[in-house]
Write a protein that binds this DNA or RNA. Structure first.
Length: 573
RNA sequence: CGGGAUGUAGCUCAGCUUGGCUAGAGCGCUACGUUCGGGACGUAGAGGCCGCAGGUUCAAAUCCUGUCAUCCCGACCA
C-alpha cells in the first residue's frame, strides 16, 4: 500500500483527552478516532491490526477444534429474562423498545451470547452422541459501561471472540477447557504479548474452574497477585494468602480496656490521626449481612475485606455490607464505632488480628473507641480465617515465596459454566441410559480490540509504537527518501513489488516530504521493519534495513534486499 | 452513580481574575520560491456562532443560571 493512497492521519501533538500511552499512541499513529465516549472508529491502520489479531484467534480456535458461527447482536429481551440476567446486568445491558406496526418490541444488544447459543443448542441437541462441541464467533459486543475510559481499553462497544463448549460430562468440559486454555496461551504468545494466566473467582463449580489472562501493565485496572518463585498467580478477588491460623492464649491479670472519646471520628484514618496511633494497631470491625443475617468481620485496620473469602468463611451463599439500620441494631451506634466487645452478632476473625498485641477497637457506642484491647483476652478468638485481600509480601499459598502485586489488563477469560444456562434455557441431552441431563457448558472470551490496545500499551518507546511482527498493520515499511528521484523510485518500486508478490504486507511512504518527517512518522506508527532507499545509499549500491525495535541499521546491497528482509521476517515469526 | 476538571481554528494552548478595538500564538493546511538523510525556511493566504440556551449590561469569549459534551478519581464491571 502506498501511503498517499490510504488514510493515515498521524498527529505530532498529544490529544488532550488521552492519558494512557495506548490511547495517546493509537490516536497519534492514526489507528483510531473517537466518535463518542466509549465508541471508536478503527481507521485503516488500526483495523488491519484488529484483523491480524482476529486471524490469529481464528486459526488457534480452529486448531483447537472449535467451530465458527455468527450470531445476532440484536436479541429479544425475553432470553435475558429467562436466565435472570436482565436484572444481573442491569444498566450494563443496552435494552430498548422499538415500534413495529402497532406493536412494541423489546430488544437488547448482546453483551455476550450465552443466551443465544444455549437457546440454539437447546433446539438442536438431543443426544449425548452429538456432544461435545465447541462453537465460537468474533463479533461486536455492547455493554453500557458506567465509565468508559483509557481509549479503546474500556468501551461500550468492542470486538470479542466468544466461545462456548457443550458437553455431556465433566470430563468433556475439562477437555474443552484445557483445549481453550492452551489455545489462549498460543494466541497471546503469537500476538507478542507478555501474559499471565491467573486463577479467578470460579463461582459455584469451585476448584480451578476459571482463569483470567492478564497482561501486566501499570495502567491495568485489575490487580494480579503472583509469586515470582513458583507459578502461582491469581486475581485479587481470588488470591489466597499462605498465612496460617494463629491463636493466642488469654493474658492473665490484663488491665481492662480504656474508653476514649472520638467525637465524629468514624473512619480508621480519622481515629488514627486523633489518637496518634498507627492503623496497623486498629481492629476494624465491618458488619456484613450473610444470607440476610448480620455477621461482623474483624480485620487489621490497614487491611481490606475480601467478600468471597468472607462468604466462604461464613458458609453463606451471598454476602453484602450491612445497611445503617442493621449496624445500629448490632452495635448500638452509627457506622464507624463497631467493635468486637459487646457486639450483638457473631463475628469472624482474620489471621492477622490475633497477632495484634494491643489494639484499638470501636466501643459500640457513638463517638467512642476502646484502647488497650488484647485479642483473645478481651474478646474470644476461637478460630481465625483468611478474610482479606492478599497484599505484597504475604506468604505464597503454594511455596515458601512472597507474593507480589502487579496491575494487569484482562484480555481473556476461560470459565467452566456448568449447567447454569442449560438449566434456565432448557438445553438438555439424553445419555446412553435414556436419562435426561442439562448440557454442561464452558465459556471462553478474548477481547480482540483490547488485545490490540494492550499490545500498544506494552510495546512502545518515546518515539511511538513498536509492533510485534505478527500483529503489525504492515510488516515492512519502505521509505524512498526522495520521491522525485527516478533512480530512488525505481529501486523502491522494485523492492515493493517483489515483497508484495511474496505475500508480505508493505507500506510505501511515497509522500513528497523531507526525510526527517517520514522517519518520525515511521517511528510513530511502528512498522517492525524499515527499508530506507536514498541517494547516498544508492551511490554505494545499498539500501538500509532496520528493525523498529533496534538502533542497528543493516546496509544491504540492492539486489539482496528482498531476500534479506524475507529472511528477517521468517526468523522473527 | 458520587467527587473533581475542561470546553476558544484540524491539533496543542493563550486571552476570562478586573466586560470595551477587527479574538490571538505555535503546529497543521493552501499557493509560490528556496531547501532536501531525523518533524526546514521565507513570502502571501484560507480557516472561529469562543460547546449550546437563557439572563445581566449601552456592551459578554470574559459575569450569572441552566444544559450538553469530554477527561480524571472513586463506586460498578455475568
Amino acid at each position: 500500500m502506498r501511503w498517499s493512497q490510504t488514510f493515515i492521519p498521524t498527529m505530532k501533538e498529544v490529544p488532550s483527552e488521552a492519558e494512557v500511552p495506548s490511547h495517546q499512541l493509537m490516536l497519534r499513529a492514526g489507528l483510531i478516532r473517537q466518535l463518542m465516549a466509549g465508541a471508536y472508529t478503527y481507521l485503516p491502520l488500526g483495523y488491519r491490526s484488529v484483523r491480524k489479531v482476529s486471524e490469529i484467534v481464528r486459526e488457534e480456535m480452529d486448531r483447537a477444534g472449535a467451530i465458527e458461527l455468527f450470531m445476532p447482536a440484536l436479541q429479544p429481551i425475553e432470553i435475558f429474562e429467562r436466565t435472570g440476567r436482565k436484572e444481573a446486568f442491569g444498566n450494563v445491558l443496552f435494552n430498548f423498545e422499538v415500534k413495529r406496526g402497532d406493536r412494541k418490541l423489546h430488544f437488547a444488544l448482546g453483551p455476550t451470547h450465552e443466551e443465544v447459543i444455549t437457546d440454539l443448542m437447546a433446539k438442536h441437541i438431543s443426544s449425548y452422541r452429538q456432544l461435545p462441541v465447541t462453537l465460537y464467533q468474533i463479533q461486536t459486543k455492547f455493554r453500557n459501561e458506567e465509565r468508559p475510559r483509557f481509549g479503546v481499553l474500556r468501551t461500550s462497544e468492542f470486538i470479542m471472540k466468544d466461545a462456548y463448549s457443550f458437553g455431556s460430562s465433566l470430563e468433556q468440559l475439562n477437555a474443552a477447557y484445557d483445549a481453550m486454555y492452551n489455545a489462549y496461551c498460543r494466541i497471546f504468545e503469537r500476538c507478542g504479548l507478555k501474559y499471565l494466566p491467573v486463577e479467578a473467582e470460579s463461582g459455584p463449580i469451585g476448584g480451578d474452574a476459571s482463569h483470567e489472562f492478564m497482561v501486566p501493565a501499570s495502567n491495568g485496572e485489575d490487580f494480579v497477585v503472583h509469586c515470582p518463585t513458583c507459578s502461582y498467580a491469581a486475581n485479587q478477588e481470588r488470591a489466597e494468602t499462605g498465612r496460617t491460623a494463629t491463636l493466642v492464649d488469654p493474658v492473665q491479670a490484663a488491665a481492662a480496656p480504656v474508653t476514649v472519646p472520638t467525637p465524629n471520628a468514624g473512619s480508621i484514618e480519622q481515629v488514627s490521626r486523633l489518637l496518634k496511633a498507627d492503623p496497623q494497631s486498629f481492629i476494624k470491625t465491618l458488619i456484613y449481612k450473610a444470607d440476610g443475617k448480620p455477621v461482623a468481620v474483624l480485620l487489621r485496620g490497614d487491611h481490606s475485606a475480601n467478600e468471597g473469602k468472607v462468604r466462604r468463611a461464613t458458609g453463606a451463599a451471598s454476602v453484602e455490607l450491612a445497611d445503617e439500620a442493621t449496624i445500629l441494631k448490632v452495635t448500638n451506634a452509627p457506622t464507624g464505632f463497631a467493635g468486637p466487645i459487646g457486639l450483638l452478632c457473631p463475628y469472624v476473625v482474620d489471621h492477622d488480628v490475633a497477632k495484634i498485641p494491643v489494639g484499638i477497637v470501636g466501643a459500640n457506642a457513638k463517638d467512642a473507641h476502646l484502647t488497650g484491647v488484647i485479642p483473645g483476652t478481651h474478646f474470644e478468638i476461637p478460630r481465625t480465617f483468611d478474610l482479606r485481600n492478599a497484599e505484597t509480601g504475604d506468604p505464597c499459598p503454594k511455596c515458601a515465596g512472597a507474593l507480589q502485586m502487579v496491575h494487569g489488563i484482562e484480555v481473556g477469560h476461560v470459565f467452566k459454566l456448568g449447567t447454569k444456562y442449560s438449566v434456565s434455557m432448557d438445553a438438555r441431552f439424553v445419555d446412553a441410559q435414556e436419562q435426561s441431563h442439562p448440557i454442561i457448558m464452558g465459556c471462553y472470551g478474548i477481547g480482540v480490540t483490547r488485545v490490540v490496545a494492550s499490545i500498544v500499551e506494552t510495546c512502545h518507546d518515546a518515539n511511538g509504537i513498536i509492533w510485534p511482527v505478527n500483529v503489525a498493520p504492515y510488516t515492512v515499511q519502505i521509505i524512498p527518501l526522495n520521491v522525485t528521484d527516478t533512480e530512488v523510485m525505481n529501486v523502491t518500486n522494485k523492492i515493493y513489488g517483489e515483497l508484495t508478490a511474496a505475500g508480505i504486507d508493505v507500506l510505501m511512504d511515497d509522500r513528497d516530504q523531507r526525510p526527517g518527517f517520514k522517519f518520525k512518522d515511521a517511528d510513530l506508527i511502528g512498522i517492525p521493519l524499515r527499508i530506507t532507499v536514498g541517494g547516498k545509499g544508492l551511490a554505494e549500491g545499498i539500501t538500509e534495513v532496520k528493525w523498529r525495535a533496534s538502533a542497528d541499521t543493516h546496509k544491504v546491497s540492492i539486489a539482496e534486499t528482498v531476500g534479506f528482509v524475507k529472511n528477517l521476517i521468517d526468523q522473527a515469526r
